[in-house]
Simulated scan of single mutants.
Amino acid sequence: MTGPREAHWLDQLQEDGYCIIPQLVAEQQIAALDADLEGAFAQAPLGKGDFYGHRTKRFGSLLRRSQVAGDLVLQPLVLSLARAILGSACDRIQLNVAQAIAIHPGEIEQFPHCDQDMWAGRKGDHEYLLNVIWPLTEFTRLNGATRIYPGTHRKPVDNLESLDDPIVAVCKPGDAICFLGSTVHGAGPNQTEDVRRGVVIGYSLGWLKPYENLWLAYPPAVAKEFSPELAELAGYVQHRPNLGNFEGQCPSVLLSDKVPEFPQATDSLRPDQKEAVREFAKTRRGGR
């Protein structure tokens, strides 16, 4: 069940393919995240490739770089929206990416795209992804603010010429730019002398291979410091039935102080599956 506030933004997401929620978190929280990432921004190289950009820096693994990044992943309204958008097609959602992006002066406009195209499955039956961009600096028309093409989540785009004019997501630190994986978007060109910085946190269906390899980004020694909810979003949980297990158990066993050498394989089934298997087993046991 959704509350009035969530319902408002959910309606916008479903109608337009995006929404911009003003001042969802305090600017001081975003400033703390920006400070935590300052060293990584300085050390990260500029990208290589016309899609990632030659004047753009990108790096992931944000949950081990800043506790504030974990707080943003768990932001209640965003999580509620992600579960409302994705929950009809999966048992649970997962973190898809937590990435920092810095668009430097001279960068050109990014190729307009929709992020669900990273998966080859059939499109249109359900959403695959919800992305949230958190500006670390002000996003303006001139410094590379994200361009979003409203309504493209509802109609296939055959070529770029068929796109209508985009909206430019002008906003400030503390605002949250939310858009569906089926919505066409792209970073704008940076025509200023300043760097535009932000982070993107994405949530996807729990049975998909995520964009960011979560278990390499957050190995057990790192993830054991997470809260249980954050560890689950970062991949340390099974998606019923039995998907993503470790030795037949929930991978959260790897976060315990003592990991058994031979974990006991244990069913992790949906209620309907559990009941069907139980009834089947009863008939076979009774027939012995």
Rank of each mutant, 00 (worst) to 15 (best):
L243W: 05
Q238N: 10
L243Y: 07
D257Q: 13
K274M: 12
D272M: 06
H239C: 13
C250V: 06
P251K: 01
F246E: 12
G244N: 09
Q264G: 10
A265Y: 00
G286D: 14
R285I: 15
F280L: 14
E279K: 15
S268D: 11
E261Y: 01
P271K: 11
K274I: 07
Q273V: 07
Q264E: 11
E261G: 09
F262P: 00
Q264A: 10
Q273D: 12
D257V: 07
K258E: 07
V253Y: 02
R240Q: 08
R284P: 02
F262L: 09
G287E: 14
Q238C: 13
F246S: 04
G248L: 04
K258M: 04
K282W: 01
V253S: 02
L254W: 02
T283S: 09
P241M: 11
V277I: 06
Q249A: 10
R270E: 13
P263N: 07
P260F: 08
K274Q: 14
F246M: 08
V277D: 05
D267N: 08
E275L: 13
E279M: 12
G248C: 11
C250N: 12
K258I: 08
K258G: 06
Q249R: 15
Q238E: 14
V277F: 00
H239G: 02
K282Q: 04
V277L: 06
N245Q: 15
Q238W: 00
A265V: 04
P241S: 15
Q273E: 14
A265C: 04
Q249W: 07
Q238T: 15
K274N: 11
G244I: 03
Q249Y: 06
R240H: 02
R240A: 11
V259R: 11
E247T: 02
K274Y: 07
P263Q: 00
C250M: 03
L269N: 03
A281P: 03
D272W: 09
E261M: 08
R240T: 05
Q249V: 13
S268N: 09
P241W: 13
E261F: 02
C250F: 01
H239Y: 13
T283P: 00
